[in-house]
């Protein structure tokens, strides 16, 4: 089954970004008690797939991640486990509070960037590329340790300007179709876009297995898909704009339970 977006997607080559007039449209934020995860709109079979670890294809990435967790890497010859021990204890709730502020760079970092900071600084290993098998595996394994935990963005004033920037990007019209994220995910949530129910864009399940992708993918891959659907210039993986959007989306979903690894159509 393919999504509404997939039916009209045209790949855009990455190119220089020109930020022209920013027309910001304010959509009404969804009242906290009306929020629902994309899970709620899944068909019965897809729900069953997410609910059953033996049927959930995302669990394969988690298993790979578990192996990587205790594999020594880099010239330091250390594994994640050498520093963090049993992930079930040390990683519990961690993904639920990312992006978090990184004092060294003075910016928020998401969980993938946090994993790469450990690789570079503690393991002296090469950073893992976005959407690489190993990055998806490690972030899925770390994410699983937060499954069922409420999303809990840090109460950290240094994050605020970045969250606000994310909110602005979210509410800014962009692309040839001249739409903002909020036009679909706030104003028209639950309506049908080319037959597909528009979810509320909660980042509860990432990385997740998407039937359309036939693979696990990160939240940034999802955001890139929506930008291409809008016929907008997408950002490079790891770009500040994506991390700001993630910071806003996690705050918008605060208190909602994590589902990693979720399944979506």
């Amino acid at each position: 089954m393919t999504s509404g977006w997939a039916r009209l997607r045209r790949l855009a080559p990455a190119a220089a970004v020109l930020a022209a007039m920013a027309i910001v449209t304010a959509s009404a934020e969804i009242p906290l008690n009306e929020r629902r995860s994309g899970y709620a709109d899944l068909g019965r079979e897809t729900k069953a797939m997410q609910d059953d670890d033996t049927a959930n294809p995302g669990m394969l990435a988690v298993l790979d991640g578990e192996t990587l967790w205790s594999a020594k890497a880099g010239s330091a010859g250390r594994s994640c486990a050498d520093c963090h021990g049993d992930a079930r204890a040390s990683m519990k709730g961690v993904s639920a509070r990312y992006p978090a502020f990184d004092a060294a760079s003075g910016r928020p970092v998401n969980i993938e960037q946090r994993i790469n900071l450990c690789r570079e600084e503690r393991q002296q290993a090469k950073p893992l590329a976005y959407e690489s098998r190993d990055m998806l595996a490690l972030s899925a394994f770390v994410g699983l340790q937060s499954r069922g935990q409420p999303i809990a963005p840090p109460d950290d004033a240094r994050l605020e300007p970045f969250r606000d920037a994310g909110r602005e990007t979210y509410n800014r019209r962009q692309g040839q179709l001249n739409l903002a994220c909020g036009h679909c995910h706030d104003d028209n949530r639950g309506q049908r876009l080319a037959g597909i129910v528009i979810p509320q864009a909660h980042p509860t399940g990432y990385p997740l297995y998407r039937l359309e992708w036939q693979s696990v993918g990160s939240l940034q891959r999802r955001l890139r898909n929506c930008l291409i659907g809008m016929r907008a210039e997408h950002y490079a993986y790891g770009a500040p704009e994506y991390v700001e959007l993630e910071t806003y989306l996690m705050w918008r979903a605060r208190g909602m339970p994590m589902e990693t690894p979720a399944v979506r159509p």
Binding site: A12, A15, Q174, L177, A232
Partner: peptide
């Protein structure tokens, strides 16, 4: 001005249009 219906024959006043579509009306 608040409509979500795209302008099918307009190229100005748009932000961050992807390279494939830039400068062309829909």
């Amino acid at each position: 001005p608040a409509t979500i219906m795209p302008s099918y024959y307009r190229v100005d006043g748009l932000t961050r249009v992807g390279a494939t579509w830039r400068g062309k009306p829909i």
